[in-house]
Design a protein around this nucleic acid. Structure first.
Lengths: 333, 333
DNA sequence: TTGTATGCGTTATCAT
DNA sequence: ATGATAACGCATACAA
């Protein structure tokens, strides 16, 4: 391995001081065009990469963003992370991705490690409770409104989320428009803001048409056989059922399996709508109608916001809007 | 935010020197039970976390493992990463996950950033070519045999992979055993070792039964509509087709959609087998028969191996075995 | 425009 | 068993 190169070595080879090298690397301070060229050439030639730890120690933060997420295996979260990483990379930041299966103990542990690494900021994707967020550390949430452990106002954070109420409404209108009159919502834990909002929007819209949907709550996220089981129960209890809105694609896919197994025509007899628009949706038969969340836009806003925070720019709350959603009409309605 | 705590502060409060604090934190050197207790208590009380950057600067590496992966959105890779992270976490390591869509430029860039961060080691999941691996940096590959840019022998690496030849063979035997005689394999880029091996195993086994399968190559990974398109073509060119082996579940799921759309009975008329056993498999109808890769074991071996490398333990090549695979028989065969 | 010198928070060596 | 101190590689205030 030999000795690793340092700015000192570069400085020597370029015949300048380390200060100058540092200046051209960070493009601040002043230096002549010629010295810049010379230094840059040497850096290039020797494939030198400044030690980020030393830099971080000096400036007390490092160009790394921590990302907390409940389940990377969930395609919706994976898509968000993918986009986040792309964008942050263009800003010159690496991402430290941490999984925690909604396990608060693990989450705290990861948060500690992140703090130990002196990350520049943290993005909290789909998180439920903010364990301990350090004041002053740039922090933005995506997808869910966390419930702070202490007093509500003590934990300020920025939130990027979809317009879930609208999503629910869109689903309701689609179902109603396609003549469904005996409908049901199946969702997850209603303490999670995203799901609560979707259900709320759906309920509101249906009620405005004089329909009172049934509400079923699944227990675990991402166990789509839950969708299948719920659908089974629903079908047996309510033979007249003609439409169901699942607040997650995974759930809906499970429901579809139940329907297919029973050879119940979709959308002929019952129509179904999912939420998220993961890649599976258009690759099952029949292809799943769903509410698409604008993942790209969510990630973009979150990343930009975080970087602004990192750079101590004042961020106007107006810049933070609810991201629009759209209905993707496919074969199940 | 105030001033961040440092060992110095802890030392003062505990009435000892910083050296002692460092010693109890790292549990090396000698110190009395009493001072240990006292220091630990203060650390606990003030929720102190040593600055990992300073530590990293000093010991010239940091407790972070870099993970390179082509597509985090692919559930198979996501599962591996999830497991890796779990295990590495128990060793006290964080993971720096980097996506690169098989884009060598991005990959190099990420590698540079990783090196700048002085990560302890790198795990390369599903990588194709090793751009520039530093000699001496612990490095292990999962899933695919990378093709080194330079001379083969110059780039030594450890590889953890499934027994893909066996997987292909299992698929062939299942199909043959269920009376398929007119079969086809659809795979991806045959320059990727994992896919090549699967096809090879399948071909061998089929040929041993006197059958010569057709081979179709899809262009992009994870675009499952490719599976659908291929299946469409296949069905039109070869009406007698009675079995197909897709070297990836995503592909197979697409194929299933084509079959369902055409109302061709599965497994009645044609049988299909996938590869990986992602969670979708048992949640579509009919549920997909597939070859399950032992993700947990792969991740475990890779992580253990890497940590051994990091700790400069001599690792016996015997410990590195091909991970066994198994056929999960469901409803498509 | 460029160089010198200090300090960031830690670990490790050498004393005591 | 414990303490003082140098060094890690960089950014920056200050000097030139």
């Amino acid at each position: 391995m030999g000795k690793e190169l340092s700015v000192k070595d570069i400085a020597e080879m370029a015949g300048v001081s380390i200060a100058t090298v540092s200046r051209v690397i960070n493009q601040n301070g002043r230096f002549s065009k010629e010295t810049e060229e010379r230094v840059k050439k040497i850096i290039e030639e020797y494939d030198f990469h400044p030690n980020q730890l030393a830099r971080g120690l000096r400036v007390s933060t490092v160009r790394v963003i921590g990302i907390l997420v409940p389940d990377i295996t969930n395609e919706f979260f994976a898509m968000i992370i993918l986009e986040l990483q792309k964008i942050l990379m263009t800003y010159g930041y690496l991402t430290l991705i941490c999984n925690n299966n909604e396990d608060e103990r693990i989450e705290n542990e990861q948060m500690d490690m992140l703090l130990g690494q002196k990350v520049s900021g943290i993005i909290y994707v789909g998180g439920r409770g903010i364990a301990k967020i350090r004041k002053g550390l740039p922090f933005v949430c995506i997808d869910r409104r966390p419930v702070s452990a202490g007093a509500e106002s003590e934990v300020p954070y920025c939130l990027i989320e979809s317009d879930n109420v609208k999503g629910g409404r869109l689903a309701a209108e689609e179902l109603y428009g396609r003549q469904c009159r005996n409908v049901c919502v199946v969702s997850y834990n209603q303490e999670i803001s995203a799901y609560k909002d979707r259900v709320e929007g759906f309920m509101q819209a249906m009620r405005s048409h004089g329909i009172e949907p049934m509400l079923c709550i699944a227990e675990y996220m991402n166990h789509y056989n839950e969708g299948e089981n719920m659908m089974d129960e629903l079908l047996e209890e309510n033979p007249g059922l003609d439409g169901v809105f699942f607040t997650t694609d995974y759930l809906a896919l499970g429901g579809l399996r139940s329907l297919a197994r029973r050879k119940i025509p979709v959308p002929g007899k019952v129509k179904v709508i999912g939420y998220d628009d993961i890649s599976l949706c258009e690759n099952v038969f029949p292809a799943l109608t769903t509410i698409r969340q604008n993942v790209k836009q969510m990630a973009e806003q979150a990343a930009d916001l975080l970087i602004s925070l990192v750079n101590h720019e004042t961020v106007s709350r107006d810049a933070i809007s609810k991201i629009d959603v759209e209905l993707i009409s496919r074969e199940t309605t």
